[in-house]
Amino acid sequence: MRVLITAGGSGIGFAMGQAFAEAGADVWITDLDVSAVPDGWRASTVDVSSESAMAELFKEVETTWGGVDVLCANAGIAGPTAAVEDVALEDWKTCVSVNLEGAFLAAKFAAPMMKRQGSGAIVLTSSTAGIYGYPNRAPYAAAKWGIIGLMKTLAMELGPNGIRANAICPGAVEGPRMEGVLEREATAKGMTRDEVYEGYAKGTSMRSFVEARDVANMAVFLGSDAARLVSGQVIAVDGHTENPDPKL
């Protein structure tokens, strides 16, 4: 199995790479920093929002691998934390470009390769912010909702070619990126970091944050033959989010 993972240098993407490698897959990651790549993985430094860079990446993938079996379009950034009237248009564009356009470009270039081989699985990383509205995170939520619309369309469009598409919606995932979100939300809402953290945890029925490996395990399932008829689905890995706003 040949697996390409965008933003695989850390966090969820890195955990996906580990999980697929453990399942016996060949792993190729992209990121802005690929300095810490395990032995046996391929890696490319790529800006996922650049069409020319993504085109070059997929040319290299086809030359080296001859195709790709699983695409995990995982690249994303948190974007600004602010009331909608305080969000700068440039910050909006940057957030949407990386999160949504990056996923679109990955699918755009993977689709022809998968069509030629008559099979493939596309796994897009959305978010619970793509299921619920999300106060003070308008660009991020809009992009993650957009990913679900993209996924649903890919599933319908590519299904006749034997290609599946699904979206994973992680909840609050432990790690450095989430710590930044917690600090920014605490400042924006006049709360402490711990109060925001507790709000996120209490907003799930399982009263827990998510580990990156939990998301990775779902990606491996969706990329496997065990999920051969699972397509067009939005699957939350979030401990069942009940309330996306930790202040309420």
Rank of each mutant, 00 (worst) to 15 (best):
P38E: 14
P38F: 08
P38S: 12
D39H: 11
G40I: 14
R42A: 13
S44G: 10
S44P: 09
T45D: 09
D47W: 10
V48D: 10
S49H: 13
S52R: 05
E56H: 08
L57D: 05
K59G: 15
E60A: 15
L71A: 12
L71T: 14
L71W: 01
A73N: 11
A73Q: 03
N74T: 12
N74G: 09
N74C: 12
A75R: 04
I77Y: 01
A78N: 15
G79M: 10
T81K: 05
E85R: 12
D86K: 11
A88D: 14
A88S: 10
L89H: 12
L89W: 14
D91E: 13
D91T: 04
T94S: 14
C95A: 09
C95N: 07
N99M: 02
F104V: 09
L105Q: 06
A107D: 05
A107R: 00
A107G: 11
K108N: 03
K108F: 04
F109A: 00
F109Q: 04
A110W: 00
M114Y: 02
K115M: 10
G118E: 08
G120H: 08
S126E: 04
S126W: 02
S126G: 15
S127W: 07
A129Y: 00
G130M: 00
G130I: 02
G133P: 15
G133N: 12
Y134C: 08
Y140F: 06
A141Y: 11
A141W: 11
A142P: 00
A143P: 01
K144E: 06
I148C: 05
G149R: 08
G149T: 08
